[in-house]
Design a protein around this nucleic acid. Structure first.
Length: 419
RNA sequence: UGGGCUAUCGCCAAGUGGUUAAGGCAUCGGACUUUGACUCCGACACCGGAGGUUCGAAUCCUCCUAGCCCAGCCA
């Protein structure tokens, strides 16, 4: 039992290179110590008036072994035990005992507790615990370009940079779940990483790849992010054709109805007036592409606004090239997806990227390294007739999305070798 | 000479005296393709440095270098 103040104990502890001094109360008798400790437990002292310490070695090179405090007085209300106790054990004393009592054999924790292992072992041994647990330390799982520290996450929430603690931009478990990352992907990701003692920074692309694997068999649908109007000049006005189309998830015979008409939307990125190079497998004037699951169309002309932006493509379609017709007289310049303009449904979509900019220096202030594109919200055009129980799907050529009551959330983008 | 720990490809990570030094991610080629996806082929490391021991070293020894953690009555 030590009557010294916190400040005195601190001063007596020495520092990294100089040994500490024994407390003047270090040699109290066992009886006196027991009586004092009982009184302490009874609440006869005020906070900080006395403390229980382990008598180890004030000159120990590991400062954790310089007579560490075991119990301190805190007349505090505990959320479980109420006011039953006014003394509380320190982590270094409670933790090894809890492990031993619970029959823990391997107690895993992070690297900064390596210096505490000697006390852990000391407590187990000196308390003569019948079961001997072992503490094993490992490195934290750090992720590149992400925020993980409680302090920083709290700051982000408080400053309203993100909405809540389960914001999908966070890589907390609840954040990942909210974003729609399947639990199997997390398991596989963790399994691939192992439990090393080295402290590296893992790239999140490893998780992304696991997510794509898990989601690879989800139904595929057509969704247009940035619509560009296409008008088929040789298609009758007013009629909407319905094409039966396989979902295209492997092993499934399910099909869906995909509308098609004179008025369509394609992705803005899928058109350039002139073919820029031989690798261009999309639409250009004079070129023919296949609209997936539908027909070949050929861009004949385009309409621009006064600023020169392309706002509409005038094209023709070839009825002979209908999907499934085994037409093979010509090869299209590529395959792009589309949506029928009059039946397409507008849907709110959210997409996420890393919270921090690439190669972020985490020692800089947060507001200097936040990625402004960590959250992007937009309205997309989606084909109709989606199943009501659709939880996940792949928007063809875009990515995997989670279907939620508030809209679509992108779980992970598709890979692309397009340059 | 305070103590504890780490160091294998751009990123993770196997490996514990004899292997062509696993594998994944990323990247770069190419095949296939009604998703520039998937899949499939192919390319991609003198093991932080210097010495030493050994027939043989990423693995053992010595020295060095770099990085991380520790001075709460926090966890």
């Amino acid at each position: 039992m030590d009557d010294s103040s916190a400040l005195t104990i601190k001063e007596q502890r020495g520092d990294l290179k100089t040994p500490g001094q024994n407390s003047p109360f270090r040699n109290r008798s066992i009886d006196e110590n027991i009586a004092l400790f009982k009184a302490m437990r009874e609440g006869q002292f005020t906070d900080g008036e006395k403390v229980l310490r382990a008598k180890i070695d004030m000159a120990h090179p590991n400062m954790n072994m310089r007579d560490p405090v075991l119990y301190r007085i805190q007349h505090a209300h505990h959320h479980r035990t109420g006011n039953a106790w006014c003394i509380y054990p320190m982590y270094d004393y409670a933790h090894p005992l809890e492990d031993a009592i619970e029959g823990i054999t391997h107690s895993l924790c992070t690297l900064e507790f390596e210096d505490h292992r000697p006390i852990y072992d000391w407590v187990v041994e000196h308390c003569e615990m019948p079961k001997v647990p072992r503490q094993i330390e490992f490195g934290k799982l750090r992720i590149k370009n992400e925020i993980q520290g409680k302090r920083f996450i709290n700051q982000l929430v408080t400053q309203k940079v993100i909405d809540e603690y389960d914001d999908p931009r966070l890589i907390t478990l609840s954040g990942l779940r909210n974003k729609g990352i399947p639990i199997q992907a997390i398991h596989q990701f963790i399994h691939a990483l192992g439990l090393p003692k080295s402290e590296g920074e893992t790239e999140l692309t490893m998780l992304d790849e696991e997510v794509r694997h898990v989601l690879s068999n989800t139904p595929r649908i057509h969704m247009i992010k940035n619509p560009l109007k296409v008008t088929l000049t040789n298609y009758p006005e007013g009629s909407v054709e319905t094409l039966e189309t396989k979902w295209f998830n492997e092993g499934s015979e399910d099909s869906r109805m995909l509308p098609f008409s004179k008025h369509l939307y394609i992705e803005k990125d899928d058109f350039l007036p002139e073919k820029p190079n031989k690798k261009w497998k999309r639409l250009s004037l004079g070129l023919e592409v296949r609209l997936m699951h539908a027909y070949f169309i050929k861009a004949e002309d385009m309409v621009c606004d006064k600023d020169g932006n392309v706002i509409e493509i005038l094209a023709t379609y070839d009825p002979a090239t209908k999907s499934g017709s085994d037409f093979d007289e010509r090869k299209p310049n590529g395959n792009i997806h589309f949506v029928e303009a009059t039946t397409a449904v507008k849907t709110v979509v959210e997409e996420y990227e890393s919270l921090l900019i690439d190669e972020a220096d985490k020692t800089l202030p947060l507001d200097e390294i936040l990625n402004p594109n960590a959250l992007i919200r937009y309205e997309a055009w989606v084909e109709p007739h989606l199943p009501e129980d659709l939880a996940y799907f792949q928007a063809i050529r875009l990515g995997f999305y989670q279907n939620t009551p508030s809209g679509f959330k992108r779980v992970v983008a598709l890979k692309s070798s397009f340059r």
